[in-house]
């Protein structure tokens, strides 16, 4: 497939970003979009030279191969499943869904219809986190003993209207919004999780602060802390620290810091810092400062063109969703949750 035609559902902040990235790519055409909000529809309809619908279902009337969906979490399953049933490949913004049950349905629909899927955990495409994964794969740190993970942003300091902030319908707040990025990276770095203990605090909206202790099947532990109400962090900041038999690694959005007892691979004994700036690889197009957004879109497009599975498909999204739900359930019941039980309870 040389040319790829796409539709976008949702023209908010993330929808506009994906639209821009995709439209600039060679042999990729964004041919239609859907936006349910009347005011946003009115502006975009005047501005963009493609058909814009208020009903996402109308997109299937166009000649498209794939859709990118950027809508509130609670709509992910309904919209994702609709396009899967219509045999269209789907990129779904993160988190995959608003519940494990819905995420599981989405995986079932996608497998039944054999479509290509991706979920928008873009940090996997960032240069520092990729390097961190490489260091772990090369066993530079030796046996892994313990880890810590943080996901913070300074966004919510009072109550707000809107689906993301409702206290009444607890939608997971900062856990789903930014904690999900961290959980996705932890699964990618350290593999399957076994048990979860979670706590959270609703201060301004839902789940503004939270923590978790996670145990992996391989015996490693992670202490997790997340919040979108962190005064210390203006932008999203994700950090993972790992202690191993040969030293320590701290990886975040800006740099990787290593301390090694003995040299390993290309890394010397003692301290090494590698900044993201040093790892910078030019990208075809950059909106803002984060190249990973373009790279994740590019990966989806390449997989669609080659008709192959993405490295971050809906099954991966379900794995993350299980842990997110585990943290919420553990907090509700004030007890340790077994990861296997969460999926079992959603059969």
């Amino acid at each position: 497939m040389d040319e790829l035609n796409l539709g976008i559902v949702g023209l908010g902040k993330m929808g506009a970003l994906h639209y821009g990235n995709l439209e600039i790519m060679d042999n990729v055409n964004v041919v239609c979009a859907a936006e349910a909000n009347k005011q946003v529809y009115n502006y975009t309809e005047k501005m963009l030279e493609i058909p814009i619908y208020t009903d996402y279902k109308k997109l299937v009337s166009q000649d498209i191969d794939a859709v990118v969906v950027c809508v509130p979490d609670e709509l992910h399953a309904m919209i994702g499943n609709y396009f899967a049933e219509n045999n269209l490949n789907v990129f779904m913004e993160k988190p995959l869904a608003d519940s494990v049950q819905n995420a599981k349905d989405m995986v079932d629909y996608s497998e039944k219809n054999d479509i290509i899927t991706q979920v928008g955990y873009f940090n996997r495409f960032s240069s520092t986190f990729k390097k961190g994964k490489e260091i772990l794969n090369d066993n530079i740190l030796g046996e892994l003993f313990h880890s810590r993970g943080f996901s913070y942003e300074g966004l919510v300091f009072k109550s707000h209207k809107g689906w993301r902030f409702s206290k009444d319908t607890d939608v997971g707040g900062s856990l789903l919004d930014i904690g999900s990025h961290l959980i996705d990276l932890l699964l990618w770095y350290f593999g399957e999780m076994e048990t979860i203990f979670g706590i959270k605090k609703d201060a301004f909206s839902s789940t503004d602060y939270g923590s978790s202790i996670i145990k992996y099947k391989n015996g490693l532990n992670t202490i997790v802390d997340f919040s979108w109400s962190s005064h210390l962090h203006r932008q999203m900041h994700i950090e993972i620290q790992v202690e191993g038999s040969n030293g320590f690694m701290n990886v975040n959005n800006d740099y990787i810091k290593l301390f090694l007892n003995n040299s390993a691979g290309n890394y010397d004994e003692g301290w090494t810092t590698i900044y993201g700036v040093e790892l910078y690889e030019p990208t075809e197009f950059l909106i803002g400062v984060e190249t990973a957004y373009f790279e994740e879109d590019k990966h989806f497009i390449e997989c669609c063109k080659m008709n192959k599975k993405t490295d971050l498909n809906w099954k991966d999204g379900l794995d993350t969703q299980i842990i997110l739900e585990g943290i919420i359930k553990s907090n509700e019941n004030n007890q340790l949750v077994k990861v296997g039980d969460i999926l079992e309870n959603n059969r």
Binding site: G12, K13, A16, N37, V40, Y43, L155, V156, H160, G162
Partner: peptide
């Protein structure tokens, strides 16, 4: 503006 749209959505920003 990005922050405002994260908090209130694109429509509240335009508004």
């Amino acid at each position: 503006y990005v922050k405002k749209s994260s908090l209130g959505g694109m429509s509240s920003l335009l508004d």
